[in-house]
Computed example of a mutant assay.
Amino acid sequence: MIALAVVGVLALLLLFLVVMTYNGLVRKRGAVDNAWAQIEVQLKRRHDLIPNLVETVKGYAAHERGTLEAVIAARRQAVSAQGPHDQASAENLLSGALKNLFALSEAYPDLKANQNFAALQDELATSENRIAYSRQYYNDAVLTYNNGIQTVPANIVAGMTGFQAREYFQAPEEERGPVQVRF
């Protein structure tokens, strides 16, 4: 009788541990999903600013059609990207196209002095900072979640209940090296 009570108490403790572990993993997975949603919010803000920026530039640099079309195409690809890897690649392509667009402002002093252009450029810079923070927050949440599903005893519960590791938001390989500065 006492042995049966001890076994029952141990079974309840084990069940409690499994439930607590599972709930902790659900919370961590939710944090990752929330962090990804925050990245998407900031990227949408960035994507919404770009058409306004392009329209402002069009009036000053109409013959720079190739640069403007590259920005529009990169934005389109970034808007339709799915998942951290594709999104990172598309956003890096868009960043490169925007750098070319901002380089145009150096060639057109009137554009550089335009208040709308300056305001949009400032808004885009603010968006870039928010995106960088959101990416960092997402990667921190992924680290916490991935560590959670890979450590004992949570890895047992994670394996039984189908929790899968999440992908980090990473820069492409070619952008990880040192920056080359040439004068």
Rank of each mutant, 00 (worst) to 15 (best):
E167R: 08
Q180C: 12
Q42P: 12
N34K: 15
S89Q: 14
A62N: 11
D122T: 12
T56L: 01
G83D: 14
N92L: 04
F16W: 13
V41F: 02
E128C: 08
V19K: 02
A103Q: 06
Y60V: 07
V6L: 15
L98V: 09
M20C: 08
L12C: 12
V152Q: 01
N114I: 09
E64K: 11
H63Y: 00
D86A: 15
A113K: 09
R76W: 02
A73K: 02
R130T: 08
A37T: 15
R65L: 05
T56R: 01
E167H: 08
A62D: 13
L143T: 10
L143G: 11
W36C: 03
L12P: 08
N146C: 02
G8N: 07
E91A: 03
K58M: 07
V7R: 03
T56F: 07
A119L: 05
G96T: 00
E173C: 07
F102Y: 12
E174M: 07
R65N: 10
R65W: 04
Q150M: 05
T126W: 00
Y133T: 15
D140R: 02
R176C: 10
A97S: 08
L13D: 11
Q115Y: 03
V9M: 12
L4I: 12
E173I: 13
G30L: 14
F183D: 14
V7C: 09
Q42T: 13
M160K: 12
A119Y: 03
E106P: 06
R27W: 04
E106S: 11
K58V: 07
L120D: 11
Y137G: 05
T21K: 00
E106A: 13
Y168W: 07
E55L: 08
N147S: 12
E123M: 11
G96H: 05
G96R: 01
F102P: 09
Y133N: 11
A62W: 03
A70K: 13
Q42K: 14
D140H: 04
H85C: 02
V26M: 09
P172N: 00
G30P: 00
A73Y: 04
P109D: 12
E91T: 08
G177K: 06
R45G: 13
V79Y: 01
A74K: 00
Y145D: 00
L101Q: 05
L68I: 10
R76M: 06
Q87W: 05
K58R: 14
N100E: 11
A31E: 14
D33M: 01
L13T: 14
A165Q: 11
Q121F: 03
P178F: 10
V79H: 10
L111W: 13
L13Q: 13
D110P: 07
T151W: 01
A103E: 06
D33K: 14
Y145A: 01
E128F: 05
G162Q: 10
R29V: 01
I156A: 03
